[in-house]
């Protein structure tokens, strides 16, 4: 293993771990499920992606396999966040904040009504 790869791995492990920790911290600090998804669903994924970069650099895991895993994570992560947020909205989980353009849209479509939102 060359010193450059070692250096890349160390930086990726440190930054990746920090991102993962920030994701967990965001889960506790942010006020509702929608804002928490920004922290856990995406900042957390950066952490995992950077840890994968470190794994590719210092272990026998091939670059091709690592790149495909990173690509799959970057595709699947946002889809999961969207699915959870959409489901949460439809079952009426409260949202912090005043502006909500979607409320009007859902209530103007017959058959697609979500529950009445309760402001926390």
């Amino acid at each position: 293993m060359t010193p450059i790869l070692q250096f890349i791995a160390i930086i990726a492990v440190i930054v990746g771990t920090l991102f993962s920790l920030v994701g967990i911290l965001g889960y506790f600090r942010l006020p509702d499920v929608y804002t928490r998804l920004h922290a856990t669903g995406k900042v957390g994924i950066f952490g995992v992606v950077l840890l994968l970069v470190a794994t590719v650099a210092v272990t026998p895991l091939s670059i091709g396999k690592g790149l495909i895993l990173i690509a799959l994570l970057l595709v699947a992560g946002p889809v999961a966040s969207h699915a959870i947020a959409s489901a949460a909205y439809r079952i009426g989980i409260p949202m912090t904040g005043k502006r909500d353009d979607l409320q009007q849209e859902l209530h103007s479509e017959p058959g697609r009504k979500g529950k009445q939102r309760i402001k926390p």
């Binding site: 920004h38 970057l74 595709v75 946002p78 969207h82 859902l106």
Partner: peptide
């Protein structure tokens, strides 16, 4: 996808 993968923005519907 591009909007949702960016932290701080997430498409709900």
């Amino acid at each position: 996808h591009a909007i949702t993968v960016t932290p701080g923005e997430m498409v709900v519907e």
